[in-house]
Structures are given as structure tokens and as C-alpha cells.
Design a protein around this nucleic acid. Structure first.
Length: 413
RNA sequence: GUGAUUGUAGCUCAGUUGGUUAGAGCGUCUGGUUGUGGUCCAGAAAGUCGCGGGUUCGAAUCCCGUCUUUCACCCCA
């Protein structure tokens, strides 16, 4: 089978039935949930100028540094979007005042050149939202509530919401300095990676998976303790607002989120079914400057591939959402086949799911197909029926049959 | 980028220390006498054993390369 020519690219897969029905369910319900929170859909291009991502995600992040599909077809260096926020903000920034108070969502493919792994593809799919506006703990809480509504709508259970804060930009230095000072005495006990991280990105030491590093991290003060009173108060207000809405979250000061643009609230939703990459969704408050003015907002993204892994662990699979019901037309003889083509067109015009065999096959074969299609009823027509202007209708579940006038069938269908 | 791992019919997999026409189950198709499915029975079609080299009288089985799968690190959704 699969010769190389028929293989899709590494980390990029074809999504087909029955899994596709799960995707469709998720997309449809996502749109419905977003509508209930009065968010509008925004579709931005997959390609943007490379600078759009460099400026919003940060030059130093791995995503920008080494995971982007970029190329230069003409004047500008372009890149395929590795996430949805940058393009969305690029769009909103162009809408002036209106863009500073917008609520939009997106659904679509994202691209990152990484080694594929559980729940990680090179072309992967996200649904996300962005709500722009000045920092407001209630907005952050609402975004988390919206995300929870989304997962609930999909029927996903067993996920965990963890919340933390990055503080304000002015907190960054005190936090980094404070953590470095606290870690310094333990330097030799940290893993190799972490010894490097202390200088490069000290926050990453906090969520190192190495057990011995974790022991040390547990001993030192959390990043939040080095932040200003205002930053801590902001987080408290978010937690309070979530409590008021009855949303259960865990405050985890060790939660680190990588992108540079985050300020204040950050959060992550994880699920035990996912393996090492257990985050199926993440979000946070950000401030993104593309031009002179920074755009403040809050948003989140959910990974479809990972959400699907979690859903399947909950026993929710695509097959459950496969289309079924409707009719199947069985034709005996060429005359009936021609007549059924006409009938099918009439039924389909009424929006009825309607299948039929277009080749001259045995009745047995046609019935088998009808059964497989999930049709509720089968319309059987041969020379007899054509002559009398009737159809034989068989109920597939009960096995019962009756004869109907053709006109009655078309009218009542 | 680092370290492992996978690749045999549409799908899930067997294939013994390299040896004649590569197997099974599921699925598909066709039948089981006049126009009836989901069960049962019978039969059939379907693989240049991921791709390319090499070793050998002979390779799905050994070696090298390459693509791909899966997993962990890294990073992230």
C-alpha cells in the first residue's frame, strides 16, 4: 500500500471519517458557545509577515526562533502562523479604537516545525478567543469561564484548571532576581538544564520535570512572592470572581507559560489522558505591541488534537456523531434506476439524506449498502411499482413494509 | 535539535535459526435459485513485505542509507 507518494508529510495527517465527525461536533458546538458569550468569528490568513510573530510572541521564544515555517517568496519574509493570537491582534490593531474592545474567536490550523509526539502535530488545530481591553480581573475570569463552557459543551470531563500570574512587566526583574538569589545556594544540586536556565530563563527552573530540581523549587519562595502587592491583588480578584461563578480552579504558582507577551493572569487546562504533553488548553492576559500602542487583552487557545485525545479517553468518539437516518433508494431494473434518480433529486431538494446505488446491482447488494448507510427507511422500486405509481417502503429497524403512493411519499417525506 | 521506536493485503496483526506459489481475523465483493439488509454458510478479489542500495546461490527476514510511525527530552495547545 502506502508508497511514499501517498504519504502525507511528517506530522501532518489526513482527518477522515469517522474521526472527522468528532471535529465537526467540536467546531459546531464551539461556535454555539462563543455565540452565547457574544464573540464574533475572525478568520485571518495562515500566512503573515514573519515580523508579526516576532513582535508579538517575542524574538527569543522557541516558537519564533526555531519552530516556524518561514520563507521569502518576494520582498517580505513570511511565516505560517504557529498560533492564532498574533494574527488576531494584527487584525485588531488595524481597527483602531474598535479593536481595543473586541471579542473574537478563531478556529483553524497552525504550523510548528517540531518533532511529532503524543498530541503534537506539525499541522495542528486550535480554537481560541481574544478579548481586548484594559486589564480587568473580571475579563480574565470570564475568559476562563468561557473556556470551561467550551469543554463542557464537548462533553469533556476530568480536566483540571490551574491558574497563576506573571505579574506586571515591572515585576519581571524582581522575580528573576529573587528566584536566582534563592536558587544560588542549591546551584550544584540542579540538573544540567536548570543550571543553564538560571541565567537564560530562570522561570523554566520552576517547572523542570526533574525530581531533584522540584525538591529545591519546593523549598524556595514562589515567583508570586516576589511580585508587587498590586499584582498579587489582581490574581486574588480573578480567583474571587471564579469562585463567585462556581468554577473550581487550582492556584499553581509553579505554572509557567512560555510566550513573552503574557502579563498578570495565566492558566492552563490539563488532562490526565494526554501523557507528557498534558496541557490541552492554555491562556492568559497579554499586552502585545505591533506598532506604537500596545494592545491589552486576554485570550486562550485549545488544541483540537489534544482535546480529542482527552475526549476519546472519556469514551467520546467520532462514530457517535456520524450522520444516519434518512432514506435509501433501491432500484430493480434500469427503468427503476432512472426513476429513482428523479425521486432522489426531489427528496434531496427537501434536505432529506438520501442514498442510492447507481450501478445495476442485486437487491441483496443494495440492501446491504442501505443497511451500512444507516438509513432509517428503504424505498424499493421495480417495474411493478413504477407501473402502479407506488413505492414499497421498508422500515429497517422493524423490518416491516408498506406500500405508499409516490405522491404521498414525496409530500410526507 | 537529542535519545529511543515502528513500517507485511483497506484495517489489526502472524511470519519460526534467511530457503520453494507471503498467511489469519475483520472489512470488501459475489453467491446460498424468481425482488429484501443487519445473523449464519460458501467462494472470490486484494500485498513488487515503506522506499533505495548492499551481502548471499537465495532476504519480509542480515547490513547501510532514506522516508514515515510512536514515545521521551526540549518547547508548547
Amino acid at each position: 500500500m502506502a508508497s511514499n507518494e501517498f504519504q502525507s508529510l511528517q506530522g501532518m495527517s489526513d482527518i477522515q471519517a469517522p474521526e472527522i465527525y468528532l471535529w465537526r461536533m467540536m467546531e459546531e458546538r464551539a461556535r454555539s458557545v462563543f455565540n452565547s458569550y457574544s464573540y464574533e468569528e475572525l478568520r485571518t490568513p495562515v500566512l503573515e509577515k514573519l515580523s508579526v510573530f516576532q513582535r508579538s510572541l517575542g524574538d527569543t521564544t522557541d516558537v519564533v526562533k526555531k519552530e516556524m515555517y518561514s520563507f521569502k517568496p518576494s520582498k517580505h519574509e513570511l511565516a505560517m502562523r504557529p498560533e492564532g493570537t498574533a494574527g488576531t491582534i494584527r487584525h485588531l490593531a488595524g481597527r483602531g479604537e474598535e479593536g481595543l474592545n473586541a471579542r473574537v474567536f478563531y478556529i483553524g490550523p497552525m504550523f510548528r516545525y517540531e518533532r511529532p509526539q503524543a498530541g503534537r502535530k506539525r499541522q495542528f488545530h486550535q480554537v481560541g478567543v481574544e478579548a481586548t481591553g484594559e486589564p480587568n480581573p473580571l475579563a480574565d475570569a470570564e475568559a476562563i469561564a468561557l473556556q470551561k463552557s467550551l469543554l463542557d459543551a464537548w462533553g469533556l470531563t476530568g480536566s483540571k484548571i490551574q491558574v497563576s500570574t506573571r505579574g506586571e512587566p515591572s515585576d519581571r526583574k524582581p522575580v528573576a532576581d529573587g528566584l536566582r538569589a534563592a536558587l544560588q545556594p542549591h546551584l550544584n544540586d540542579l540538573c544540567e538544564d536548570c543550571q543553564r536556565r538560571i541565567d537564560e530563563n530562570v522561570l523554566r527552573v520552576i517547572d523542570c520535570k526533574n525530581e531533584s530540581c522540584q525538591k529545591i523549587v519546593d523549598q524556595i519562595p514562589s515567583a508570586i512572592e516576589f511580585m508587587s502587592d498590586a499584582s498579587r491583588a489582581y490574581l486574588d480578584q480573578v480567583i474571587q470572581a471564579l469562585e463567585n461563578m462556581g468554577i473550581d480552579v487550582t492556584v499553581n504558582p509553579k505554572l509557567i507559560r512560555g510566550l513573552d507577551y503574557y502579563v498578570h493572569t495565566v492558566w492552563e487546562i490539563s488532562h490526565s489522558a494526554l501523557g507528557a504533553q498534558d496541557a490541552l488548553a492554555g491562556g492568559g492576559r497579554y499586552e502585545i505591541a505591533l506598532g506604537k500602542k500596545a494592545i491589552p487583552g486576554v485570550g486562550f487557545a485549545v488544541g483540537f488534537e489534544r482535546a480529542i485525545m482527552a475526549l476519546e479517553a472519556c469514551g467520546i468518539t467520532g462514530g457517535k456523531f456520524a450522520p444516519e437516518g434518512g432514506l435509501w433508494l433501491v432500484s430493480l431494473g434500469d427503468a427503476a434506476l432512472a426513476e429513482n434518480m428523479k425521486l432522489a433529486a426531489q427528496l434531496r431538494a427537501k434536505g432529506i439524506r438520501c442514498g442510492m446505488e447507481l450501478a445495476n446491482k442485486s437487491m441483496k447488494a443494495q440492501m446491504r449498502k442501505a443497511n451500512r448507510s444507516g438509513a432509517a427507511k428503504v424505498i424499493i422500486r421495480g417495474d411493478d411499482e413504477i407501473e402502479k405509481g407506488i413505492v414499497t417502503v421498508k422500515d429497517m429497524a422493524e423490518g416491516s413494509q408498506e406500500e405508499l403512493n409516490l405522491e404521498d411519499l414525496i409530500r410526507d417525506a
